[in-house]
């Protein structure tokens, strides 16, 4: 793995303020997230709703400006045009993220025009055909509209559009969550294959732990706007150091009835609201290991074994 990361995020913060008339306080979506993405790798991000994973995704591609902190691509910040071109995004719901009044050809050639990547209509058309072929769609259907395709095919259109600018990084925000379970595997396999053949680096954001483990080399676990644990997938899943990671893994339903009797960690309550995150460690209100220290001292992300965890009582290998 090369030393220089392709994408680097340093201490990102993002707070959404309520409107003028809103009584609710500001939502602290992301509070101090740093990460690095290396060429050709997949970084998975898991977490429950409200943990800030989608906000993080939007900041990584420059759709959202961080309040503080910085995202750099090979050392250069947004919003330089070639940086934007190199970091693309695939959204969760392909039906709402594709303009229903544009044909597939228009949709996929739009980034080519914006970034002046193909000269003239025939060249663009040829390139759109190539891209559709790459994602497993029949180029003959490029004059159709998004609603004429199934959910899985629409997600392929979204991927073709992201690939149009030959990016080095694609950030996928819940790319398979809206798809039927029999179709999810098609899209997961397509992303894995594109990574192998094109060497593109992926950030794969999802709430499904099994899918994330399947696709990722490294995994970050987020809780209430912060990274609780991050490291190689085998380490994070195999020997989780943060109690939240253990609880999350333990709570995930497993499609094998023979494992029903296994010991499970049951967390009490719901994740607290990001409007008023608890002081100290944000997980201490639901944590069975919590001590007085946890409710006052915010733990820093520190190395444990081969990965990093933000916990005063991290599980360390014996």
């Amino acid at each position: 793995m090369s030393a220089e990361p392709v994408l680097r995020a340093v201490n990102l913060h993002k707070t959404y303020r309520g409107g003028l008339l809103s009584k609710a306080g500001a939502v602290r979506a992301v509070s101090g997230v740093s990460l690095e993405l290396h060429a050709g790798e997949t970084l998975g991000i898991v977490g429950e709703s409200g943990c800030g994973k989608s906000t993080l995704a939007r900041m990584l591609v420059g759709l959202e400006k961080p309040d503080s902190g910085e995202v750099t691509f090979r050392g250069r910040p947004f919003p330089a045009r070639d940086v934007r071109r190199s970091v693309q995004m695939v959204f969760q719901d392909p039906l709402t993220s594709l303009n229903p009044r544009m044909t597939v050809q228009d949709l996929v050639s739009e980034p080519l025009q914006v970034h002046r990547l193909a000269n003239g209509a025939p060249a663009r058309r040829a390139r759109v055909g190539e891209l559709l072929d790459l994602v497993g769609l029949d180029p003959d259907r490029m004059n159709r509209f998004p609603h004429e395709f199934s959910g899985g095919q629409r997600q392929r259109i979204g991927i073709a559009r992201a690939l149009a600018t030959e990016p080095d990084v694609i950030v996928c925000d819940e790319p398979v969550s809206a798809l039927d379970m029999s179709v999810q595997a098609q899209v997961v396999n397509l992303l894995a294959e594109l990574q192998r053949t094109l060497g593109v680096a992926l950030v794969f954001i999802a709430h499904d732990l099994a899918v994330v483990r399947h696709v990722s080399h490294r995994v970050g676990v987020m809780y209430l706007g912060r990274v609780a644990e991050i490291g190689p997938a085998t380490k994070v899943y195999g020997t989780p150091a943060h109690p939240y990671t253990s609880a999350l893994l333990s709570a995930a339903p497993v499609p094998r009835p023979s494992l029903r009797g296994r010991k499970r960690i049951m967390l009490g309550g719901d994740p607290p609201s990001p409007v008023a995150p608890p002081p100290g460690c944000r997980f201490h209100t639901r944590c069975w290991k919590a001590t007085a220290e946890c409710s006052t001292q915010e733990p820093a992300l520190e190395p444990v074994d081969d990965h990093f965890a933000a916990c005063h009582h991290a599980t360390r290998p014996a």
Binding site: L209, A251, M266, L267
Partner: peptide, 10 residues
């Protein structure tokens, strides 16, 4: 969410 799902199923 998955941690809450486990509670409800139980």
């Amino acid at each position: 969410d998955v941690t809450v799902q486990a509670q409800i199923l139980e």
